[in-house]
């Protein structure tokens, strides 16, 4: 390939901040599509797939990367620095996957303060730390000064730090949806397609998982919730929620193909809030509460006892992006000057 041809290709980057790496694997898992991506783009930065240094990115002209898929939430100062850097260098910055878009599992740390998190990480029974050492942003050793990224008080989503052009939901996004997003990007860069309005969620539907779920459903009255692992037999054709299984499908954006309910498991909400939903947890809580068939405080309590982990049920993927954003402890620390 000639140098001129390489220069003509749009540049592509992908980065992982606070994430498990599953989103990167999901992109690689698109099968042959990855070859098409490679052919259509000049991949300039992708730590999981190729060696590159931050200073290489810093050296690039601003706006020179056509498309950056940013996975992971903003947990520390390094994540934040890279978010700002890649925003500057990219024409299109995509919050890719649940962590970047709504905080996901790392976001659940927002229920705890930094001190509580460090206590759990550095002082637990399984940790050998006789000197009670804690990570510090800078430390002087005989050889000189060492630096570590600073651990932020709360986990933030990418769009709480920098403006984001598009959101691709999912933990991780489904391969066919990634392929569709990449096809759209390639077509747009080749001048064959229009980009959707800025700020939209792409690679997903506009309704909820129920839209793709084949299970039969009726007007609902729920007299008890049961965790799915405690149920001996489920009706394979009936709405899980109607069977007392706390299924998050009604509030979760469609696009995954209702994989979990089709396989007999409840939706846990990894595709994030549906188009019209501002706060996923509050929406779902309010929806469940609306159909609870209980007339007095005691029976309401009995129904709620079937939801032993409300934070995990309603805010598993979206605490950082929710209206709550954080529990009181983390919030107080976040507000410190």
């Amino acid at each position: 390939m000639s140098a001129a041809a390489v220069a003509a290709k749009p540049r592509f980057a992908m980065y992982w901040a606070a994430s498990c790496g599953g989103c990167d694997i999901a992109v690689l898992n698109t099968g042959e599509k990855i070859l098409e991506i490679d052919a259509a783009f000049d991949v300039v930065f992708w730590p999981v797939a190729m060696d590159a240094k931050y200073r290489d990115v810093e050296a690039m002209p601003d706006g020179s990367i056509a498309l950056t898929l940013f996975s992971g939430s903003i947990r520390n100062s390094e994540n934040e620095e890279m978010a700002r850097l890649l925003r500057r260098k990219s024409r299109l910055l995509v919050a890719f996957g649940s962590c970047a878009g709504e905080g996901c599992i790392p976001g659940l740390a927002n229920f705890s303060s930094r001190t509580e998190i460090f206590d759990a990480a550095y002082e637990s029974v399984s940790t050998d730390n006789p000197e009670h050492l804690r990570p510090l942003p800078s430390v002087t050793v005989p050889e000189g000064e060492l630096h570590l990224p600073e651990f932020c008080a709360t986990v933030r989503t990418l769009d709480q730090v920098v403006p984001v052009d598009y959101f691709v939901p999912g933990c991780p996004p489904e391969p066919h949806q990634i392929a569709a997003v990449m096809d759209l990007a390639m077509a747009a860069f080749a001048g064959r397609a229009e980009l959707p309005p800025a700020g939209s969620t792409i690679g997903a539907g506009h309704s909820t998982v129920c839209d793709e779920c084949p299970r039969e459903r009726h007007a609902k009255q729920i007299s008890s919730f049961t965790r799915i692992q405690q149920v001996a037999a489920l009706d394979p054709a009936l709405c899980l929620l109607e069977q007392g299984i706390p299924c998050n499908g009604p509030a979760t954006r469609d696009g995954c193909g209702a994989l979990c309910p089709k396989a007999g498991a409840q939706c846990i909400g990894c595709y994030g809030p549906a188009e019209g939903v501002v706060d996923f947890g509050a929406r779902l809580l309010s929806a469940f509460a609306s159909v609870i068939d209980a007339g007095d405080p005691a029976s309401i309590d009995r129904v709620l006892d079937g939801l032993p982990d409300p934070a995990g049920q309603f805010y598993r993927f979206n605490l950082a992006k929710s209206l709550l954003r954080a529990g009181r402890a983390a919030w107080a620390e976040d507000r410190k000057p």
Binding site: H206, S207, T208, C210, R217, K220, G249, P250, D254, G276
Partner: peptide, 22 residues
Amino acid sequence: DPSMCSGCRICNDLCPFSAIVF
């Protein structure tokens, strides 16, 4: 908004004025 309604039917029994039709 019919494009956003997936027919989960959570609202169906709630209307005190019977204004909801599925």
